[in-house]
Amino acid sequence: FEAKTSGSDDLKAIISAISTLVEEATFVATAEGITFRGMDPSHVALIDISWPNSAFEKYECDSDIKFGVRIDEFSKLIKRADKKDSIEISISEQNMLLVTVGKNKKYKMRLIESSATDTPLPKIPYDSKITLSSSRFDKILGDVQVVSDYLTIHTSDSKADFSGKGDSGEVVIDLEKDIDEIGEISSKEDSIGTYSLEYLNPVVKAVGTTAGQITCEFSSAKPLRIEFKVANIGRIHFYLAPRVES
């Protein structure tokens, strides 16, 4: 198994997103590419990533392998790469991850026993969909966070608003149809869902500017799925379970 990225931004974004949920991550490499799927310890959020072989400068994988890494250790190595530096990873016979950063930095990192079990994806319909720039979404989360720990998303016909309510007050942000920043709002059914900013904020910050656009899909009292559109990466899906009244 050997994979070489062109540039380091995509790998940094992926590792940063994963680091918001788990301390140890198991990746699966197949001939098709590299995948990761995992939940945070309390099972409130799930990240599902698929990174196709075509996105790499060089990619070889003769047989399927799983490899586990401590995310903070891996992250430290990858941060040593400049934006344009390629990162090459392979696995040694001594069960070490070989990480070549740029032209001349060759790291070896101990792999960990992978305890990964196959996590399914939640089976849910998505009644509503909002596409907007990730920078706009990041600002909205900041606007809500000053009064609340939770974001409520509401769609009605083809309108949407984000809101938050806390002890000190509340906020409503109407999404006007701004062509530059709001790509699309659609709803098959009016939907309302409330989600924790404790999970949302870090992952949106982590993928940050690497994703131009994001798509939020949800239904009333169902998990939110955010798709980050990162040019070379097949899929970065972030699922977040709702808070519901009972």
């Binding site: 939940m39 309390s42 099972h43 409130v44 959020a45 799930l46 399914p120 939640p122 089976k123 849910i124 409330t194 924790s196 009292a221 169902k222 998990p223 699922y239 379970a241 709702p242 808070r243 519901v244 009244e245 009972s246």
Partner: peptide
Amino acid sequence: LIRQKTIADFF
């Protein structure tokens, strides 16, 4: 009462 659901509630 507001409750935080888990992803597993929707498998």
